[in-house]
Measured scan of single mutants.
Amino acid sequence: MQIFVKTLTGKTITLEVEPSDTIENVKAKIQDKEGIPPDQQRLIFAGKQLEDGRTLSDYNIQKESTLHLVLR
């Protein structure tokens, strides 16, 4: 499924993921596309910060959901 990741600069990254993918996994995909190390990434969905060990389905993230990427 496709999800979108919006950065603070207003750029939107499109990722191909599975509901069973972990947040860690998603961060690795963002690193592949954008070169941002996962340890600098914070992903936010519905106002919650997403934890590395959880999966997209844990957070009920469905196709075409938009996550927000904050760098630390």
Rank of each mutant, 00 (worst) to 15 (best):
M1K: 10
M1V: 04
M1R: 04
M1L: 14
M1A: 04
M1Y: 07
M1C: 01
M1E: 05
Q2S: 10
Q2M: 08
Q2A: 03
I3K: 00
I3V: 14
F4G: 05
F4D: 01
F4L: 12
F4M: 14
F4H: 09
F4T: 12
V5A: 04
V5R: 00
V5Y: 03
K6W: 10
K6I: 07
K6H: 07
K6A: 13
T7M: 08
T7Q: 09
T7Y: 12
L8R: 04
L8G: 02
L8H: 06
L8Y: 10
T9K: 12
T9W: 04
G10A: 15
G10Y: 03
G10C: 03
G10V: 10
K11I: 12
K11V: 06
K11P: 11
T12K: 03
T12C: 02
T12E: 15
I13E: 02
I13Q: 05
I13T: 04
I13M: 11
I13K: 01
I13Y: 11
T14H: 07
T14Q: 04
L15H: 00
L15D: 00
L15P: 00
L15G: 00
L15Q: 01
E16G: 08
E16W: 11
E16C: 02
E16F: 07
E16I: 10
V17Q: 04
V17S: 10
V17F: 03
V17M: 09
V17P: 01
V17K: 00
E18F: 01
E18L: 04
E18T: 13
E18W: 06
E18G: 12
E18K: 10
P19W: 05
P19N: 10
P19Y: 10
P19L: 14
P19F: 14
P19T: 13
S20D: 12
S20K: 07
S20M: 09
D21G: 11
D21I: 08
D21V: 15
D21K: 10
D21Y: 06
T22Y: 07
T22R: 08
I23S: 04
I23M: 06
I23E: 01
E24M: 05
N25Q: 05
N25T: 07
N25S: 04
N25V: 11
V26D: 00
V26A: 06
V26W: 01
V26C: 02
V26N: 00
K27P: 00
K27A: 03
K27C: 02
A28V: 11
A28Q: 12
K29Q: 11
K29V: 01
K29D: 15
I30F: 08
I30L: 12
I30N: 01
Q31Y: 12
Q31S: 11
Q31H: 12
Q31R: 15
Q31N: 08
D32G: 11
K33R: 06
K33I: 13
K33P: 10
K33D: 09
K33A: 10
K33N: 11
K33H: 12
K33Y: 12
E34K: 03
E34C: 02
E34M: 05
E34A: 13
E34P: 02
G35W: 09
G35N: 05
G35L: 10
G35M: 08
G35F: 07
G35R: 06
G35S: 05
I36V: 07
I36T: 05
I36G: 08
I36P: 15
I36L: 13
P37F: 10
P37A: 14
P38L: 13
P38T: 14
P38N: 15
Q40L: 07
Q40C: 03
Q41T: 10
Q41N: 03
Q41K: 03
Q41M: 14
Q41L: 11
R42H: 08
R42V: 10
R42Y: 12
R42E: 09
R42K: 14
L43T: 01
L43G: 00
L43N: 00
L43P: 01
L43Q: 00
L43W: 02
L43M: 07
L43H: 01
L43D: 00
I44W: 12
F45M: 12
F45R: 03
A46R: 03
A46K: 05
A46P: 02
A46S: 10
G47D: 15
G47P: 01
G47Q: 14
G47C: 03
G47Y: 04
K48I: 15
K48H: 14
K48L: 13
K48F: 08
Q49L: 10
Q49E: 15
Q49Y: 09
Q49N: 13
Q49D: 14
L50R: 00
L50M: 14
E51H: 05
E51P: 03
E51V: 03
E51F: 04
D52I: 05
D52Y: 05
G53V: 08
G53C: 02
R54I: 13
R54C: 02
R54T: 10
T55A: 06
T55M: 12
L56H: 00
L56C: 02
S57G: 09
S57R: 08
S57K: 04
D58T: 04
D58Y: 13
D58W: 10
D58K: 13
D58A: 05
Y59C: 02
Y59M: 08
Y59E: 07
Y59A: 03
Y59W: 06
Y59V: 04
Y59I: 03
N60W: 07
N60G: 06
I61W: 01
I61F: 03
I61Q: 01
I61H: 01
I61P: 01
Q62A: 13
Q62Y: 11
K63D: 14
K63Q: 14
K63T: 11
K63A: 04
E64Y: 08
E64V: 06
E64F: 13
E64R: 03
S65L: 07
S65R: 01
S65W: 06
S65H: 12
T66G: 06
T66R: 04
T66F: 06
T66M: 09
L67C: 01
L67D: 01
L67S: 01
L67Q: 01
H68Y: 15
H68I: 05
H68M: 08
L69R: 01
L69A: 04
V70G: 09
V70S: 14
V70C: 02
L71N: 13
L71E: 14
L71C: 02
L71M: 06
L71K: 10
R72F: 07
R72C: 03
R72S: 11
R72Y: 13
